[in-house]
Design a protein around this nucleic acid. Structure first.
Lengths: 222, 222
DNA sequence: GTCTATAGCTTGATAGAC
DNA sequence: GTCTATCAAGCTATAGAC
């Protein structure tokens, strides 16, 4: 974007540090002092550039949300017509996977941050709905095209379950590593992803099929 | 348990208030002053009864974890032999559903608290693994009995996705209410649960079937 | 844009009287 | 077990010099 050899601007240094720390300890678990210390800048600069702490938090979320949404929309646009269900799920989830795997450590932090926000009613409306509902609606519409006679509510619920599984996956909590005594590794996102896709596709298919009148069923099969 | 007409002990008043507030704002989002004020007791009593704040937090989690685990184990024990997959999922998830629906407001708070803890690596080992791994292993073993030739790792991952969907459901964030413009209601846990069960069963079945050598497949079907 | 200095509060924890 | 009082540290936010 910016063609210059300055290592990183003060604003970006603050955003990076805030992202890392918020992801680790949550909004209330981090102070502006910790953030500016980590960023190597003076305390007062956080307020100067972003205003109050809550605005800094929103700025952290927004920075990557736009990029994520753009990539998701691009993948939706590139799908075959009609798309496959797995294609739709993949278009929604893959940008997160790719960023987390190859986008640098900031994206890993971001994934954990989104996980916290997704779970907390406190940020649901201001952050989740505001940033992600448009793309979510796009996904739902795509699935709807595959089961036109299915009650939409089933598809909303299916999306809700999908979100839960995705968030858990990208948060990389390490829980499954402990439970499986090391046989599974949360950090091997590529391996988890390869299982998540069929798991979610099967779940969505069953819900949709159950709610579709037999007379109007297409011969849909994996 | 305790046959007395005392309304509630100081310890329980503190636990109840802490549960409600921690669930709402997270560990760092609540002060001991808020908790004791809400409980109607003096600040110093929190420390007297529970020690440092972190210990109070653990006490809040443990109080209901034992009850939950006991009920889950009872349901596992009452399953048919061999159990059905939906029966196993139900045994694991239903206690949470019933408590959240009819156990009083404390259980609703508890559900949100567990959601936060499940997502945060900070509490994964000390809380989630310590409190819930035993029952989780029981669940996995049950599923394993249904697909003896299936690689266990697939079942761990399936459990991981299931947890994500469950947590998202019981947290009742209201996200899906906004996204669906009121057509779905997070608070109608009974309705969500009726969809969650087949969704998860289908997902687990597909993962297990994919990883099971064709030669050893039983004629398993919904 | 950056820095120092500080105001005004809140925090977790405890000491000591009852 | 409960209360009051308090400490030392941390917090967000800002005013004002450069």
């Amino acid at each position: 974007m910016k063609a210059s050899q300055t290592p990183t601007s003060t604003k970006d240094r603050i955003l990076d540090a805030a992202e890392r720390l918020f992801a680790e300890s949550g909004y209330d678990g981090v102070s502006l002092r910790q953030i500016t210390r980590e960023a190597g800048v003076e305390l007062a600069l956080a307020n100067y550039h972003f205003g109050p702490k809550s605005e800094l938090f929103l700025a952290v979320v927004q920075r990557r949300a736009n990029e994520l949404n753009r990539e998701r929309m691009a993948l939706f646009a590139a799908l075959s017509t009609p798309p496959t269900l797995e294609g739709l799920i993949d278009a929604f989830a893959r940008p997160f996977l790719e960023k987390s795997l190859h986008g640098g450590p900031g994206w890993k932090s971001y994934a954990r941050l989104i996980a916290q926000i997704s779970i907390s009613p406190r940020w649901t409306e201001r952050v989740m709905a505001a940033q992600f509902d448009e793309v979510a609606a796009h996904f739902i519409n795509g699935v709807r095209g595959l089961w036109p006679a299915c009650d939409v509510r089933e598809l909303y619920w299916a999306f809700h379950f999908m979100l839960g599984a995705m968030i858990m996956t990208f948060a990389e909590t390490g829980r499954i590593d402990l439970l499986s005594r090391g046989r599974c590794k949360s950090t091997r996102l590529d391996q988890v992803y390869a299982r998540m896709l069929p798991f979610l596709a099967a779940g969505i298919e069953r819900l949709a099929a159950q709610a579709t009148p037999v007379a109007s069923r297409r011969g849909k099969r994996a």
